[in-house]
Design a protein around this nucleic acid. Sequence first.
DNA 1: AACGGGACAGCAAGCGCTTTCTGTCGTGAG
DNA 2: CTCACGACAGAAAGCGCTTGCTGTCCCGTT
Lengths: 354, 354
Amino acid sequence: MTVTLADVAARARVSAATVSRVLSGNYPVAERTRGRVLRAVEELEYVVNGPASALAAASSDLVGILVNDLADPFFGIIAGAVQGELSGAAGPGGEKLAVVCSTGGSPERELRYLTLLQRQRAAAVVLTGSASEDPEHARALAAKLARLSGAGTRVVLCGRPAQPASPAAEPPATLTTLAFDNRGGAQRLTAHLVALGHRRIGCAAGPAGRTTTGERVAGHRAALAAGGIADAPHRTVHGAYDRASGYDAAVELLRRDAGLTAIVAANDAVALGACAALRDRGLRVPEDLSVAGFDDLPFSADAAPALTTVRLPLEEAGARAGRLATGREERPPGGLATLRAELLVRASTSVAYP
Amino acid sequence: MTVTLADVAARARVSAATVSRVLSGNYPVAERTRGRVLRAVEELEYVVNGPASALAAASSDLVGILVNDLADPFFGIIAGAVQGELSGAAGPGGEKLAVVCSTGGSPERELRYLTLLQRQRAAAVVLTGSASEDPEHARALAAKLARLSGAGTRVVLCGRPAQPASPAAEPPATLTTLAFDNRGGAQRLTAHLVALGHRRIGCAAGPAGRTTTGERVAGHRAALAAGGIADAPHRTVHGAYDRASGYDAAVELLRRDAGLTAIVAANDAVALGACAALRDRGLRVPEDLSVAGFDDLPFSADAAPALTTVRLPLEEAGARAGRLATGREERPPGGLATLRAELLVRASTSVAYP
DNA sequence: AACGGGACAGCAAGCGCTTTCTGTCGTGAG
DNA sequence: CTCACGACAGAAAGCGCTTGCTGTCCCGTT
């Protein structure tokens, strides 16, 4: 029923070996022969059997991409950029395919998908977004990544901090980290607010126990401290990285301290949710309260008011990750690069009117 | 170096056949034996070789998802929903992996990715978003899909109209279409504008030659006709489905007819771009011009002003596509289902003030 | 004219797993 | 007590492709 290499070989009157070599193109084949083979391939509409060649060659052209949530533009942009680089410049091994896995932030699913990718003998794996801070999972993850690395799978951490150094040795040469300067960005953002005279700033943070949340909150705290503002734990609430959580967070923050003059959110969606909550309670942004987001997703500029936020080079990060995954880019020294986070002041923040 | 089935078999003191059967679980194996095998698997940290089993079993657990642009939430939401269903309820064949391919709207790349997926012997393929209207490509695509179908790959068209019936016969039983009622939605949207008194309505349409664009424009025209408004070709401009195009389109539409009182956009991003253009020229929405979007992506409610748009059941469509792809949902009668498009009136449209 | 060597093409041995067909027990029925 | 049969487990034949090793042929050298 289905056409195989042997069929093509028969039609082209050559051996299967020759056909294979023509198709993979890494062995001298006479021009005449090549032509005959190619014609046979055309005529028979032959399509290589991927699994078979993966088995024989002990390599596959699948690249795994782990994301929290594909529907979130933050991850969509990164995944899209990674994928874009996989098809570009069909370097060694030709076209790669992106296997996208949504973990929903669950460490278990993260591990499970990694096993699935390991099973597929993926050529590379890109882990995006924040990681769990649970030491047990961190250990399990490190072990898994080490095993993948050991099997020749390239591993790229994109938008998450470097794996905590394993007790044994430094990260393997096939593990690269592309981190975002979440801490610095958050710090500059809160410093901006402080400079505008804000003293009572609420923090609608992301889910507890995740590296990104931790980093952003740390930056926020650092800026407060630098401004001589006492730490007020009750001014921070945790929630998911979505709009609904932002709404709830704003309500809760205001309940705890009605005198807040600003809110920094975990990301843009949360900020928009917070804005909606404020609007519903008759508060104006930024006249009554300033609100700031994080990430600078495309829609944040069109929001009302346009969101002050921190721009992360999502696209660049994804593209680099894709190139690293296909071995088309030199890994940075030490296997770690930190990407800048740039403060973007727009209309949602202004001086504090106490 | 790497652990194989044989290693596990040796350790469990059984044959490779038995191990395989324990792992795939579709053949009686005594409880004691099974236990021994499972333990050996644990101890050796054995992970099946995907390509090898795919080859032997002539089946893979890869499902292809073709999208225009992963970074666009429209596709991110659909792809995420499809993917979500792949892991859910590990039915026959267990966990499936999603291979996401961005075609960028290029029919060539669409075809190329389909070949790549065919090469991987994908279990199913989901094509999302609009299709090219070029008859030649339509034919090539139909042929490709027929070949995939013939090879047992399930094919789901999600958010695009049914393939034009091939001259030969009706679509194969493994081809299902989940279409959006773009035409109806667009018609209701423009009718809403007409009812508000608008007579000079600009249309910032999507790229020419794509089914979605065609359907939405057709709906728009139908509503105009129903309202007794003469067709004015110069009031329609085509562009990409992004914000920048929306900006340009608005500028161009206004240049052609400064008396426009409303603009219907190809989608929400285009609408937001148009709003930005109007804002830049000192025009207020909706006081000076009404603007409407399409799709109802999450951010459109937070825009300024909140966008009147047409809600498409993206999530539902993706989820159904995922279930159809894994054979977990009965295909609708005739292999075609059309999903409702619901008009959502918000703040960006109001009565026309001539 | 004999020979060394380059340039191709083919043989055949796997790659690691699935599955059909056999074989071996243990047990209930006769 | 014997026979038939159900319930497992194993042997072995591929699945379709890659690749190291062998040829074979033809050409340039000496």
